[in-house]
């Protein structure tokens, strides 16, 4: 299975290549990609240099252009595809049907991957995109169990890539307007979720309160580490019960199930984290590379080392296990 690694900066890109990534994915510095965070992402020149570096080392470069084209501003997305193709991207990762149609028509030989943001969660959905846009690979939304994935793999005519490590969306990706409801900025339109521009922390007595827009997302008593107020991982009151209504502040780790994913027919394992620093990327990629190559006896030690790198050191296998539902 290929190891697909994130890069939010040219430095992280080189680290990922050096650490043994089969492919590195990245995006342009604008609203065309779903990690449109301040200080991240690539200019055209940076992408050109990154692709050249990757080529020298036999690594592929995937360019994520995976937000939805804003009506009237389609040119920004078209140019992102034009430039990614011109600069030699090994694949473009797309979510918008209009942009898939543009790409399939203009660049019939360009390898097209379906982004997780497209929310293709079943065989008929995937086959629709394969037939219509000649998609070669689908990145599956994090809502399927491993048996679901195995069944899907038998019914589709393209490769499967799944997220195995890093941030975890609780909601079906590409179908979530929670952030937009609270802040006016959405993953689909702006490439951001719970954006830092709308985050505030304030002290209230002995508690630290984290807010997103006009809403309290969490309150931390003295001594409890304050996490970032990602909306779906906040603490709320539901029917007078106080708690994490959607999901605890955990991150995804399904490295224990790597062999099952391989048997299910998965072609590529994806690490989330384009917003992470180069040291994190270097460490996660190299440990994961070794974990994939290790035999069953040596793997657990490597996996526990990976776990130390996770947010808050708490992880979940999420929807890949049925009991999560």
């Amino acid at each position: 299975m290929e190891l697909i690694c994130p890069a939010g900066t040219p430095a992280a890109f080189r680290e990922a290549v050096d650490a043994g990534a089969d492919a590195v994915y990245c995006g342009f510095r604008d609203e065309t990609n779903a990690r449109n965070f301040p200080g991240l992402n690539f200019s055209r020149d940076e992408l050109k240099a990154a692709i050249a570096y990757a080529r020298q080392h036999g690594t592929m470069t995937f360019v994520a252009i995976n937000t939805f084209m804003r009506a009237g501003r389609e040119k920004l997305w078209h140019e992102a595809v034009d430039d990614a193709v011109r600069l030699g991207a090994d694949a473009v990762i797309l979510a918008d049907f209009g942009l898939m149609a543009y790409t399939a028509e203009r660049y019939p030989d360009q390898r097209l991957h379906v982004s997780v943001q497209a929310s293709a969660a079943n065989a008929d959905a995937v086959n629709f995109l394969v037939e219509t846009f000649r998609a070669k690979r689908v990145v599956l939304p994090r809502i399927l169990t491993i048996p679901d994935i195995a069944r899907l793999a038998r019914q589709i005519r393209c490769e499967i890539e799944v997220f195995v490590f890093g941030g975890l969306c609780v909601m079906a990706e590409g179908r979530c307007s929670l952030s937009s409801y609270a802040t006016g900025k959405s993953p689909n339109m702006n490439g951001v979720c719970s954006p830092a521009s709308h985050v505030r922390y304030r002290e209230d007595g002995r508690e630290l309160v984290s807010e997103l827009g006009d809403y309290t997302i969490n309150r931390f008593p003295a001594g409890e580490a304050a996490g970032y107020p990602t909306l779906c991982k906040g603490r709320f009151n539901v029917a007078d019960e106080r708690g994490y209504a959607f999901e605890d502040p955990v991150s995804l780790d399904v490295m224990d199930h790597v062999d099952l994913l391989r048997e299910a027919g998965v072609s590529a394992l994806k690490i989330e984290g384009r917003q992470r620093g180069k040291a994190y990327v270097a460490e996660v990629v190299s440990v994961m590379r070794r974990a994939l190559a290790a035999n069953a006896a040596d793997r657990p030690a490597l996996i526990s080392r990976l776990r130390l790198l996770s947010e808050g050191q708490r992880t979940t296998s999420g929807a890949y296990e049925k009991r999560w539902r």
Partner: peptide, 10 residues
């Protein structure tokens, strides 16, 4: 997700 005319036309 229909966010633009191209998708609607498709």
């Amino acid at each position: 997700n229909v966010y633009n005319g191209a998708t609607a036309r498709l």
